Amino acid sequence: MKVIFLKDVKGKGKKGEIKNVPDGYARNFLFKKGLAIEATPANLKELE
């Protein structure tokens, strides 16, 4: 799953980066803790 990092996550990504991460990791950790959001076309446009 492609995500946009909202905060730095040690060993995974830095704020503003767009990366592919495992689906479970994104849903169960990154999204729940507010560390990242899904890289949807709308979210990507908002980032620019």
Results as ranks from 00 to 15, higher is better:
1 M>L: 14
1 M>V: 15
1 M>A: 05
1 M>S: 04
1 M>P: 03
1 M>Y: 06
1 M>N: 03
1 M>R: 08
2 K>V: 14
2 K>S: 10
2 K>P: 10
2 K>L: 15
2 K>D: 12
2 K>W: 15
3 V>R: 00
4 I>R: 04
4 I>F: 06
4 I>Q: 03
4 I>Y: 09
4 I>L: 10
4 I>W: 03
4 I>G: 00
5 F>E: 00
5 F>I: 01
5 F>D: 01
5 F>Y: 07
5 F>R: 00
5 F>W: 02
6 L>R: 03
6 L>P: 00
6 L>Q: 03
6 L>E: 01
6 L>G: 01
6 L>S: 02
6 L>Y: 03
6 L>W: 01
7 K>D: 06
7 K>T: 11
7 K>H: 13
7 K>Q: 13
7 K>W: 10
7 K>E: 11
7 K>P: 00
8 D>N: 10
8 D>Q: 04
8 D>F: 07
8 D>W: 06
8 D>R: 06
8 D>M: 04
9 V>E: 01
9 V>G: 01
9 V>L: 06
10 K>Y: 12
10 K>E: 12
11 G>N: 09
11 G>S: 06
11 G>I: 01
11 G>D: 07
11 G>Q: 05
11 G>E: 05
11 G>K: 05
12 K>G: 13
12 K>M: 15
12 K>E: 10
12 K>F: 15
13 G>K: 01
13 G>E: 02
13 G>F: 13
13 G>V: 06
14 K>Y: 12
14 K>Q: 10
14 K>L: 11
15 K>M: 10
15 K>R: 13
16 G>P: 01
16 G>Q: 03
16 G>R: 03
16 G>L: 05
17 E>T: 07
17 E>M: 07
17 E>S: 05
17 E>R: 02
17 E>D: 11
18 I>N: 02
18 I>Q: 04
18 I>H: 03
18 I>L: 06
19 K>N: 04
19 K>A: 11
19 K>D: 04
19 K>R: 12
19 K>E: 03
19 K>F: 05
20 N>D: 13
20 N>F: 15
20 N>K: 14
21 V>H: 01
21 V>K: 00
21 V>F: 09
21 V>L: 05
21 V>R: 00
22 P>R: 09
22 P>D: 11
22 P>G: 08
23 D>T: 15
23 D>I: 15
23 D>R: 13
23 D>H: 12
23 D>N: 12
23 D>M: 15
24 G>F: 13
24 G>D: 15
25 Y>H: 04
25 Y>D: 05
25 Y>A: 04
26 A>S: 03
26 A>F: 10
26 A>L: 09
26 A>I: 08
27 R>M: 10
27 R>I: 14
27 R>E: 09
27 R>V: 12
27 R>G: 03
27 R>A: 07
27 R>N: 10
27 R>D: 06
27 R>S: 05
28 N>E: 14
28 N>I: 05
28 N>Q: 10
29 F>N: 08
30 L>A: 01
30 L>I: 01
30 L>R: 00
30 L>N: 01
30 L>S: 00
30 L>T: 00
31 F>L: 12
31 F>K: 03
32 K>N: 08
32 K>W: 08
32 K>Q: 09
32 K>V: 14
32 K>G: 07
33 K>L: 15
33 K>Y: 15
33 K>I: 09
33 K>N: 15
34 G>H: 12
34 G>T: 02
34 G>L: 08
34 G>M: 11
35 L>N: 01
35 L>M: 08
35 L>H: 03
36 A>D: 00
36 A>V: 05
36 A>W: 01
36 A>G: 03
37 I>D: 02
37 I>F: 04
37 I>T: 06
37 I>G: 02
37 I>V: 13
37 I>L: 10
38 E>Y: 05
38 E>R: 09
38 E>T: 05
38 E>N: 03
39 A>Y: 14
39 A>K: 02
39 A>D: 02
39 A>M: 06
40 T>S: 10
40 T>K: 06
40 T>D: 05
40 T>Q: 04
40 T>P: 05
40 T>M: 05
41 P>E: 14
41 P>I: 12
42 A>M: 11
42 A>Y: 07
42 A>V: 10
42 A>N: 11
42 A>Q: 14
43 N>I: 13
43 N>T: 09
43 N>G: 08
43 N>Y: 09
43 N>D: 07
44 L>W: 07
44 L>S: 05
44 L>E: 06
44 L>K: 06
45 K>Y: 09
45 K>R: 12
45 K>L: 12
45 K>M: 13
45 K>P: 06
45 K>W: 09
46 E>V: 14
46 E>H: 13
47 L>P: 06
47 L>A: 09
47 L>N: 09
47 L>S: 08
47 L>R: 09
47 L>Y: 14
48 E>F: 11
48 E>A: 14
48 E>L: 15
48 E>M: 14
48 E>Q: 13
